[in-house]
């Protein structure tokens, strides 16, 4: 693990890695998102009960999944940053945090828009909605803590600690809220063999999930590149890069 990670502790190697990965993520994002959205929004059959308004699922579910996925990757980066003292991992935490917060906000807003016609209210105090809202608070906490510090080195470490504390608490929050009140339907696509969702809707949904994941990856990589450049702006290799471009 260490041998494999070690080269990327150097900022210029990490920057290069970002550059190599970025086009793949970008291409997957564009292709999957176009195909997934057109398929989901135009060609997938309408639901027998919810008619066309169910189609927001193709944005709502991927963003909800990614809101948690982004938090866990942020926490993994934070653990790497604190255990191996890798500064690039700290930068990754900061690169992911706003992206994750945005995805969480998208999930909440699309959820509200879906809830209005289906449940008759923009917002209900249901378990999943509440824990998603708390997730947003945790993201905002990490972000505001980072920006409160003058010294960006300490800021990255503090944000990492908070991200780890948050990830330990997240399951507790999730289950306590679940126990507290539940109206939201359960997950439909956890068990692949006994699918609660029809294949004609399942595949475009999968495609959209992949697209969202790649999208989060793309934006994170772009932000990480910027963070590295900003942090290392006094280094010769950055100067060289800037002079060349």
């Amino acid at each position: 693990m260490w041998k494999w990670l070690h080269p990327y502790a150097k900022a210029d190697r990490a920057y290069q890695l970002c550059n190599t990965l970025l086009p793949y993520f970008a291409v997957i994002t564009v292709v999957c998102m176009i195909v997934g959205w057109v398929w989901g929004l135009a060609y997938a059959p309408a639901d027998y009960q919810q008619k066309d308004s169910y189609r927001i699922i193709f944005i709502h579910v991927p963003s909800a999944i990614l809101s948690m996925g982004a938090y866990s990757s942020m926490a993994i980066a934070a653990i790497v940053a604190l255990v191996w003292q890798l500064r690039n991992a700290e930068l990754a935490v900061i690169a992911i945090a706003p992206v994750g917060a945005c995805v969480t906000a998208i999930a909440l807003i699309t959820g509200a828009a879906w809830g209005k016609p289906m449940w008759g209210a923009w917002w209900v105090w249901d378990a999943r909605l509440t824990s998603e809202l708390i997730l947003l608070f945790l993201y905002l906490g990490v972000l505001s803590l980072y920006h409160a510090f003058e010294d960006k080195k300490a800021a990255g470490r503090a944000a990492s600690i908070l991200a780890i504390v948050g990830v330990i608490n997240l399951p507790i929050i999730h289950f306590s809220v679940e126990w507290w009140n539940t109206l939201h339907q359960g997950a439909s696509i956890t068990k692949f063999n006994t699918n609660a969702i029809d294949p004609s809707m399942f595949w475009p949904l999968m495609l959209n999930i992949v697209a969202f994941a790649a999208f989060v990856g793309t934006v994170t990589l772009m932000r990480l590149k910027n963070e590295i450049l900003q942090r290392e702006k006094h280094r010769p290799w950055v100067r060289q890069l800037l002079n060349r471009g």
């Binding site: 608070f137 905002l140 906490g141 505001s144 803590l145 409160a148 908070l162 306590s176």
Partner: peptide, 19 residues
Amino acid sequence: GLQKGGILMSLLVLPLYIP
């Protein structure tokens, strides 16, 4: 270590109090 840590601290801590 922050100058105006008080309000920020409540933002960080209150979500963790929910359970």
